[in-house]
């Protein structure tokens, strides 16, 4: 049996028994041993850990004098040299939730693993769940014991440096990472089981919880098109004929820069379409369909637009991971901004 872990606990003024809203300005202080729910925590830790000390702080004090409160936390980390820090649980309380998360984050930054506890609907969750371990709890102190049980279990694993499993198994809220693994049953069986549970109004857990996509705010419209330098970019898979640049037709990780300063149009003699997501032959016969150089040259000639930027950008927009898409988009955007381009015509297929 390994030695008991040294645990530092954080609670607010209410759970420390100091008082309610009227005592919310109570300054941060360090106390020996377990306080309030820390006594239950100590019982639940059993031989695995000892609550060596507790930081107590009023919720308003923490909110208004956060640096001072965190200085006390850092002092406690130095004084008590804990193996793991446990904060809360804060249940649905917003100010307490943020304090628990900040203390947990501060411990983690100091190299001490930490676990916060709060309800999934706590406002601190979206702010902190990607950076710290937050154990999901019920909404109210009625669920104190199961909450502390789960927090203690995870804290012991973290304190002992053990490998941490998936969020659902360990009881923490997902940190925004997905990893491959094997489930007990094959997919077809899980699908039919999930359907039967859903039909019977029994609980079931989606293996891919809903995650909304980013919303992109469009840039303001150009006020003076006739004076604007316009760049062209395409995700239609424009390549140089023969593909000397070895651009892939899908899962692209790199984009082409093509100098079109001296070109009136894209000739099929020099260019082609290579893209795994549509019928390429028509665009291959007239590459201006996927990067409309010939058409913007017409607009340039009649001064509808100021000028066409000399470099065009091209890739095949198929199956590329979002992270890679973000990276390439940012790189292209930065180059266009540095070149003083006013607007960009991005052609998709």
């Amino acid at each position: 049996m390994s030695r008991p872990l040294r645990v530092l606990h954080y609670v607010n003024q209410f759970f420390a028994g100091i008082g309610g809203e009227d005592k919310a300005n109570h300054p941060a202080e360090i106390r020996d041993g377990a306080v309030g729910p820390g006594r239950l925590l100590a019982n639940l830790l059993g031989d695995e850990g000892i609550v060596v000390g507790t930081v107590v702080c009023g919720d308003n004090f923490f909110q208004e004098q956060q640096e001072q409160a965190l200085a006390v936390v850092r002092q406690a980390l130095t004084d008590w040299t804990p193996d793991v820090v446990i904060t809360g649980p804060a249940f649905i309380s917003g100010r307490y939730g943020i304090a628990c998360a900040e203390v947990a984050r501060t411990a983690q930054e100091a190299g001490v693993p930490s676990v916060a506890g709060m309800n999934a609907e706590n406002p601190a969750v979206p702010m902190y769940s990607q950076n710290i371990y937050i154990v999901g709890t019920g909404p109210s102190p009625a669920s104190m014991e199961p909450a502390l049980t789960a927090m203690a279990r995870l804290a012991v694993k973290l304190g002992r440096g053990e490998e941490i499993g998936p969020a659902a198994d360990e009881g923490y809220l997902p940190r925004g990472e997905r990893r491959l693994g094997y489930r007990a049953q094959p997919g077809y069986l899980r699908a039919v089981d999930m359907l039967v549970r859903k039909l019977r109004d029994q609980p079931f857990a989606s293996e891919v919880p809903y995650q909304p996509v980013d919303k992109v705010t469009p840039a303001p419209a150009l006020s003076n098109l006739a004076g604007a330098t316009i760049a062209l970019a395409t995700t239609g898979g424009l390549i140089r004929r023969g593909n000397p640049d070895h651009q892939p037709a899908s899962n692209t990780r790199s984009f082409l820069r093509i100098d079109v300063a001296d070109l009136a149009e894209l000739s099929p003699k020099d260019f082609d379409a290579y893209h795994a997501g549509y019928y390429n032959a028509i665009a291959g016969d007239n590459p201006n369909y996927i990067l409309p150089l010939s058409y913007v040259r017409e607009l340039e000639a009649v001064d509808e637009i100021g000028s066409v930027h000399s470099t065009v950008y091209a890739l095949a927009g198929v199956s590329t991971p979002v992270a890679e898409s973000r990276r390439m988009g940012a790189e292209i955007g930065a180059e266009l901004a540095a070149a003083g381009v006013d607007g960009c015509l991005l052609v998709a297929t």
Binding site: R178, G181, P209
Partner: peptide, 14 residues
């Protein structure tokens, strides 16, 4: 791409 769930392969949130 296991279209019909032959395998136990899946993903987990961490």
């Amino acid at each position: 791409d296991d279209h019909y769930g032959w395998t136990r392969l899946s993903t987990f949130a961490y």
